[in-house]
Design a protein around this nucleic acid. Structure first.
Lengths: 223, 223
DNA sequence: CTAATTTGGTAACATTTGTTACACTTGCTA
DNA sequence: TAGCAAGTGTAACAAATGTTACCAAATTAG
């Protein structure tokens, strides 16, 4: 473990060199644990009393609904704070099992220690808040896109959000945009083609232009 | 404004009587603003430097993509903290306009003041963290449901999440469950009927029973 | 420069979901 | 008790999206 891992949330430490960080007398009580591939890091229903900073390795989460039958949920790679959303929530228990997919390393910091550190170090407080706020923002945006029905509606929303003036850039491949929307690539491709055909937008190789803005609005407001 | 509004996030104050709260010498610098119906509370692109506690009234958010053409996003009623996700985020500007739908009252507290208060009062810190964590949890769950393709998949996930043993309860009307899933009521109704017909579950008036659990798992893992 | 790989457009068809309308139940109210 | 409203199941049809396969364009590797 590097000391930097422990100061993951501290905006003042994040960019410091390893040497500088060694000099800081900022001590945070914690436990360092290593897990072999296949070991359980946390169990469904466990109370979340620590931050779990995954510093090395990779884990998966799964729901066990019946002995022998498990349901895979997602994979998470280091470095990442596990269970950050649960530590301070009213329903503060693990909704899933967490299992090491590779040999992994986890720093566990007690909730009370996190609270103290936030009270003590403004940079840590800001870093922690920034982490949760950024994640909330990310989730909000994705949920907004997902809640829009119809691929053209998603496209219209995306374009209106990513344009100032008349021209927009997709900034990523069609394939990854389709994944972002949660639809199949050919479906997105078809929707785009139809919108071009209908004279609503122009589009070519990642760049586009709004032709009929009010039509875009209509697509969106019809929802 | 009630003083309680100002201590919205403080878990120690939330349940106190108005009289008790009056006795607390906990002062938080703030600005109280009132807006007439139709007035703008914040503009798209504004830097978010305050928490906006909506204490009275109702607001809407909208994207203005072109003069005269606006896109309605959502309505928010008091009491609710506006822009809580943006205050500490790296991208800390309003993504929307915020407009008063009724005569409204807003408490504005500067970011620095919030930080100080969190450092000073553990109850405020916890309350604030609980608010953001609960919201993150809510968003995560909804996003999970939305990201599952196919109504039966959503149903399977929902059931496996809401059951210990063999029996489950929907705990809400089919209509509101359909809304939660983001699908139409008859579609959900059809999916349930088919699952009953296929011998996967039993279901009657809000209560159900898993008949073929492994089939449920298959539906989910096929995704 | 050419071949190989990736990326994107398109078409035909299958599947899912939405839409609309109606019947039936339940609980409540006049 | 009759009548009304809300909630639900269902069916026929329409519309949207997924699936699969193939080709063309763009990019990369050699």
């Amino acid at each position: 473990m590097e000391k930097r891992d422990l100061l993951y949330f501290c905006t003042a430490c994040r960019d410091k060199s390893i040497e500088d960080i060694e000099k800081i007398k900022c001590t945070i009580p914690h436990v360092l644990k290593t897990y072999k591939k296949g070991e359980y890091i946390a169990y469904q229903g466990d109370k979340v009393a620590h931050i779990f900073l995954l510093t090395k390795g990779k884990v998966k989460t799964e729901i066990v609904s019946d002995p022998g039958l498990t349901l895979h949920i997602e994979e998470i790679g280091a470095p990442y704070p596990l269970a950050a959303a649960f530590l301070f929530a009213d329903r503060n228990f693990f909704p899933v099992d967490v299992v090491a997919l590779e040999d992994s390393e986890v720093i566990k910091i007690r909730k009370e220690v996190i609270e103290e550190q936030m009270a003590k170090c403004p940079f840590f407080l800001r870093g922690f808040m920034a982490f949760t706020a950024n994640r909330m923002q990310f989730l909000s945006e994705r949920l907004k896109i997902f809640s829009l029905k119809g691929i053209k509606t998603k496209v219209a929303f995306f374009i209106l959000q990513h344009t100032r003036g008349e021209e927009f850039e997709i900034g990523q491949s069609i394939a990854s945009l389709a994944e972002y929307f949660g639809v199949e690539r050919p479906s997105l491709s078809r929707a785009l083609s139809e919108m071009v055909h209908d004279g609503i937008i122009e589009y070519k190789s990642g760049r586009g232009k709004i032709i009929n803005r009010s039509e875009l609005e209509i697509i969106l407001n019809d929802v």
